[in-house]
Design a protein around this nucleic acid. Structure first.
Lengths: 257, 257
DNA sequence: CCTCATTGCGTCTTTATGACACAATAATAA
DNA sequence: TTATTATTGTGTCATAAAGACGCAATGAGG
């Protein structure tokens, strides 16, 4: 039903298992050491880093396919993921990329091969707890690592554009989806939450007003523990009160109408 | 390059012109008589109304295809449109629909026909000035009419779900995209703008506070004319100051962070 | 045990929001 | 012609939220 395909027979036989001309790419976000990071792959025969992606089985729902790709890449099952945009310009240049890659691998294929067609890709972003993810390479890639969002250079094909759009979406959805909950560990400090907001919004926030506003919403629980070990005063730990968080987000955290 | 296809050779020959397994559907919004409306089609051989849709030529960008469909349907060229979601469940049931339709038309086709495959559809919404649209049927439909948003019953396939998602997106983007500008005529009254907001947000707003807030943003110009003819006091006409509107939206009209 | 950067909590001012009062006005009915 | 009526234009007041900042408490490191 869902056979494990090697690099070679993916090219030669993928066409009979996957939807034609359709792929998906995942922007997997993690938060670590007060930095927003993205999981990137380096594929065999490619110089540039790329977003992890995959194809959709002929009988598989789009979301299922994204879930499967994320599972393969991070080892995690219950991942928060959101479809955010379809990238459908005819010049996305999957074709050149695949042809180049096949040449490097030394494979000769028919020009009607399913991979040598124009592809439209659905962008998903995922939010994971950095701590519990174990990035793993697959058979077609040589590296799989976290990259800090601001240090990312040129990515494969239109992946920079996909990443930008994912970030923009994340910013717009910050007040409507449980982004903090999914990106932070169970217990976190107020400065950590603030830094997450600042990174996503790309804007400095006042420490004291931030704290007042967040506690005002009432969706974080202050714990009795503190985070020892830092160089200065130990901040209190907090955790999300998920039902209250979701309820508040449903209304929208921004003033609005 | 982009041949006009009749109903018959669309089925038989569409496969050589269009991307396989991929379609797009448009939710075309208009605002008229203080009601939000959607343009729906009734297709030959179908009982239910449907969203206007189309396919993507093999060398055509996704947005181009959407623009083309909108042009065909409304006669308009410069339409504001936004891609908002991809619908990719395997049980969307395009297949049953097409098979049924072909039977009614009395057409026998191969089971590998391109239309009898699973289709994934990209949802676009469009905002048009109701006044200047001339809905037109195409060769595959028997009617094309505006429907008030709250009176719409069961639509074809998953089109109710697509419409719902479009409305939800519209609500979320109200403070970030020039939605008023694109839905209202050049000149409009404050009560009209308010009704538009109320319909999209599905919420009553205080007339006086609404006016204060909108004028406070500074992106509407009060004109010296009034809208005569109503049964009561003639309201002033306003028009959007587009550059200021866009600038304000870029910041986001909601308080936010 | 002193230093210092960081954290926790608070104040004050300004701005925005929500609720409501009242006068002005254009079509209609008397 | 004039009164009626529903609606629009403008303003007030109380309350809530946002922005700017002060200061004491704390924990690690010297």
């Amino acid at each position: 039903m869902k056979p494990v395909l090697t690099s070679i027979n993916l090219i030669e036989e993928g066409g009979q298992f996957f939807m034609p001309s359709l792929s998906l790419d995942c922007v997997i976000f993690g938060f670590h050491e007060n930095q927003l990071k993205v999981l990137l792959l380096k594929m065999k025969g490619a110089d540039e880093w790329a977003l992890p992606g995959g194809f959709i089985f002929k009988e598989e729902a789009l979301d299922e396919a994204a879930t499967r790709v994320l599972k393969e890449r991070t080892g995690l099952n219950d991942i928060f993921l959101q479809q955010f945009h379809v990238f459908g310009n005819p010049d996305r240049n999957e074709i050149k990329f695949h042809r180049k890659r096949m040449q490097k691998v030394g494979l000769r294929v028919d020009k009607h091969n399913w991979l040598l067609q124009r592809f439209i890709t659905v962008g998903y972003y995922a939010l994971v707890d950095f701590e519990i993810v174990k990035p793993s390479v697959d058979q077609s890639s040589v590296a799989c690592d976290w990259h800090e969002i601001h240090t990312i250079k040129t990515l494969l094909m239109d992946h920079n554009q996909i990443l930008e759009k994912a970030l923009e979406t994340l910013r717009l959805q910050l007040n409507h989806l449980p982004i903090g909950y999914n990106l932070l560990p169970q217990k976190f400090t107020m400065p950590e939450l603030q830094k997450l907001y600042e990174t996503i919004l790309d804007k400095q926030l006042d420490r004291r007003n931030f704290q007042r506003r967040i506690t005002g919403y009432g969706f974080v629980k202050k714990l009795k523990e503190t985070r020892k070990g830092g160089a200065h005063k130990a901040p209190f730990l907090y955790s999300f009160h998920l039902s209250k968080y979701k309820k508040a987000l449903a209304e929208g955290l921004d003033g609005g109408w």
